[in-house]
Nucleic acid binder design. Structure first.
Lengths: 197, 197
DNA sequence: TTTTTTCACTAACACGCGTTAGTATGTTAT
DNA sequence: ATAACATACTAACGCGTGTTAGTGAAAAAA
């Protein structure tokens, strides 16, 4: 009877969540079964329920841990005394870095949140809406003081956020360019597309 | 016994495919059941099989009809004698327009193709890969003759294509800005982000 | 060492899934 | 009117799903 192996400071629940992220990313939340997950963890399906309450709980944990990270980051960026363009660059670099280094979680929380159940669903959608509004507000401030082209700010936010999810394709065919080069290219194109010159 | 109602020149199969697109977009391919689809069409689930071979066939049809449209379009654009930037602008305007006017199909083919089964899966992935390479080749040509910033072309393609899928959010909260404004804003930011000035 | 707690096991459940068979009804062609 | 066809129905299938109950072994605490 082999237990789920854990290094210290990593609970068995966290091991399961990590494997779940990978599986949900690969197959999608609905298509990934608890028996698949059990196999990935090295245990029988029923055993998972000693550590988690339900399949959906796994999705909650993933979505909200990612959402919280982004929320805390924008809190910090908003308070800094730098130009709007610099704030946007910081936000974008954070998005890119998260997508590069926590690929599975970020991808899943971005694509699979639809399968959350209320009240988590509304909560998550709310957080997302608020985050985008705050992002748009920064862009609008930049437009007002002529740093940024006169564009529709919410549209710009859409572009920025969705462009980052293109990093998925980079992950699929890895090592063609480095993560650093990827980041610089994305910043050049995206921030360059906003800047007023 | 109420039949599936069709206007002339629209087969019952096409009606089913259209409803399927809408349903797959809303719930995802795996989460949308044939019984859901049957209800949307106004018929019992088993009756659908008088018109289609399987659930997956619906996904094939959706994915490949979209893929074919994009392939034909890039065929035309490649042959035109215009600048690289103009070609890219044409491609992007087509992507935006398709995403605006054939939202459900395009969205589904973009997000749910993973659930295709071989040989369709490999076929689809192949087409996608080829399309992106051709897109990247246009960008590279533009870089060589200094129209376009010196960036990594495949990365630029990722950004462009994924940015367009942000139109999903525009659909969700419609009428805030017009489709035309949306298109112009996207072109300004994205094509502007490539252009060498 | 003994007791308590943690955790993995087997077995099974109720349910929803995609799909098929067989049949009846409505529509179109002769 | 009658034959042929298209299309809807009901009933059911085998299968995979998420999850629960109950049991026993290993690990941790006493």
């Amino acid at each position: 009877m082999a237990r789920i192996k854990t290094d210290k400071n990593i609970s068995r629940k966290e091991v399961i969540i990590t494997k779940a992220a990978s599986l949900f990313r690969e197959k999608g939340f609905k298509a990934a079964s608890m028996r698949d997950l059990a196999e990935a963890v090295g245990v029988e399906a029923a055993s998972l329920y000693n550590h988690i309450k339900s399949k959906t709980e796994l999705l909650h944990e993933l979505c909200f841990s990612v959402a919280n990270r982004f929320m805390h980051h924008i809190d910090e960026v908003e308070m800094e005394k730098i130009s709007a363009i610099q704030k946007i660059e910081k936000l974008m670099r954070f998005h890119i870095s998260e997508m590069v280094h926590h690929y599975e979680e970020v991808y899943v929380s971005d694509r699979e949140w639809k399968h959350l159940a209320d009240p988590y669903l509304s909560n998550y959608q709310n957080q997302r809406r608020i985050y985008r509004k705050r992002f748009a507000a920064i862009i609008e401030a930049g437009i007002r003081n002529k740093e940024i082209k006169n564009i529709d700010a919410p549209t710009a936010v859409l572009i920025m956020l969705h462009a980052v999810s293109g990093i998925e394709s980079w992950h699929r065919s890895k090592q063609r360019i480095s993560a650093e080069e990827l980041e610089e290219n994305m910043i050049t194109i995206l921030v360059g597309g906003l800047t007023n010159r």
